[in-house]
Design a protein around this nucleic acid. Structure first.
Lengths: 340, 340
DNA sequence: CTGAAAGCGCTTACAG
DNA sequence: CTGAAAGCGCTTACAG
């Protein structure tokens, strides 16, 4: 078993072995200036022989040009978060950037500061923050003014221009649309299981309420859930107690699955007794029985858009304008008219 | 809207504003040497005023000590991959390392080289490669000898000492155990839906076959699936055609859900007509109806172990020894005795 | 405690 | 085409 060399070879080692000067090695490395074929060959051979790789820190330092972008997020594995991250990574890779993930687990001061500092301890060209929850909001607020920053976020409530460009997902409108759809089917009202958000009620909750108000339908109390699918189960148990529940809009698909499981365990059939609509279009949504009606959100596209906004921010010129994506209601097997 | 400053302040700017020398600023930054309280205050004030953050590239260069580790993987969102990544990130963060994700989409030469080069273009302390598929194998082979590297992988088939330390998941043994369990329940044999692997049959497939052989049970042809849950559905459709299928071991939980959906669509009841066992213990496995019997694999722990191996590799001294985790069979509602 | 000097590994003008 | 020189932003001995 070869013990890894404790010290990586540097450009001077290559120059010595190849019998040329250091700048010449640099020239064959960067290809910026022509080098005579024979020297070029000698340098290449030396590079191969030593297994030389240019030191990224030195390169970044002298070029003053960074090739890493950071993604600040409270989580990497939840569906929407993970897909956004994937979208950012894809776009970044295509543009020659490496992505650093900086997890900000909670919104508390110390955690946020630690994450931001450690990220800034490396040469970053910019950052995208996933402003999906309170930790994201806190991270965004802690970013230094000189770093190009953009955010991916759900649709904001009020107006006002944000300080940095945003890629928005208009789940507010989508929630309203889904609610309206249920109401049009004849449901007297629509119940709602909410998920954690950036502080107050989520955009999804707001959209739901707005549609109810517009239709003059009663507004039931929101049932709160967290990210665990089992909390959806608990919410479903609570909802199953109330006989007048005939339609439920859930904060995401996993919650919807938990709700349906609880409903089934309590003998309420979906969609015959209760209609259920989720959010996201999780890969398993269509495999569920019955297949889940949901609001499809293309988080990978959102991530790509956020990265595009970031590259634009890194350019000179006016900051790019925020953009917003529109989710799409996907009708499947868990929604229908109310019983009777 | 504040236009981001195009140039970040440097330590010399701080020194000028604070009226001290550059090394003094550096000293308050690193805390390595005491600085008089008044100067210290002036420096801190200047840092705040300018929004100064030390340049990571310069720091990394002079310290010669890197604080980033790379994770090379073909994917970031699939369950096992994402959870391993999360485990690595957690452990890295606790040790003060930042993680860079380098996605190697395919095993082809150019893709692998591009990913490895771009990663090495930055100052990396080491790398962990997710050797879960062919792209992972190719990435591992392409790592330079001077970089500390470890791998996370399923249990290898043959013996032989690997070139780098590995954190293994012994899904081979777990697959054999699950198969044996089904056989002991009275099933004549167990069918199997396989997922993509590092080249030949996966460790899970090998374990399944081994248990069948040991019990003298017939070995049915493996039904191949890819990562898409819908490919599990297709596999289930094929299996539903054969009336003698009473037990199926699936390559992962999502495939199992697809299989069950197809079985249900064809009128075969689970577990009354057919028992199904998955792999992973996906968060939704217990929410499925009936809840899914599966092999729980703690990928986050595997990731943490891989990172521990990496820090050990970065130390002087002999390379650490590989370690292996044992998955656990979780009995739930989709497995039972054969019909009749 | 503090400043002047050297140096980390590389690239980019500057002169041939 | 090629080498000697300077410099990126920081930290670490070296002398006070």
């Amino acid at each position: 078993m070869p013990t890894p060399a404790r010290k990586a070879p540097v450009i001077a080692d290559v120059a010595r072995v190849a019998g040329v000067s250091v700048p010449t090695v640099s020239r064959v490395l960067t290809g910026s200036v022509p080098v005579s074929p024979e020297r070029r060959e000698r340098v290449l051979a030396a590079i191969r022989e030593l297994g030389f790789r240019p030191n990224g820190a030195a390169r970044a330092l002298v070029r003053g040009q960074q090739s890493m972008v950071a993604v600040l997020t409270s989580n990497t594995t939840r569906y929407g978060y993970g897909m956004t991250l994937q979208g950012i990574e894809e776009a970044a890779r295509q543009s020659g950037y490496l992505v650093v993930i900086s997890v900000v687990e909670t919104p508390d001061r110390a955690t946020v500061a630690a994450a931001v500092d450690s990220m800034l301890g490396q040469p970053m060209a910019g950052a995208v923050v996933l402003e999906y929850d309170q930790a994201g909001v806190a991270a965004l607020a802690a970013m230094p003014p000189w770093l190009p920053v953009v955010a991916a976020a759900p649709m904001p409530d009020g107006g006002g221009t944000p300080a940095v460009p945003h890629a928005y997902m208009d789940d507010h409108a989508a929630a309203a649309q889904a609610t309206r759809y249920l109401l049009d089917l004849g449901h007297r009202t629509v119940h709602h299981v909410g998920i954690p958000s950036t502080g107050g009620p989520s955009a999804r909750t707001l959209g739901w309420r707005e549609a109810l108000d517009a239709a003059g339908a009663p507004v039931p109390a929101v049932v709160a859930a967290d990210w665990a699918p089992t909390s959806g189960y608990d919410a479903g148990l609570a909802l199953a107690e109330e006989p007048d529940v005939t339609a439920v809009l859930c904060g995401n698909d996993e919650i919807a699955m938990g709700v349906m499981k609880a409903l089934a365990d309590r003998g309420r059939r979906v969609p015959d007794d209760v209609s259920v609509i989720g959010f996201d279009d999780h890969p398993l949504a269509q495999l569920w029985s019955p297949s889940l009606t949901t609001v499809r959100q293309d988080f990978a596209a959102l991530g790509r858009q956020a990265f595009a906004l970031l590259t634009a921010s890194m350019q000179d010129g006016p900051p790019p304008r925020s953009i917003t994506s529109r989710p799409e209601l996907v009708l499947r097997g868990t929604s229908g008219p109310p019983p009777r």
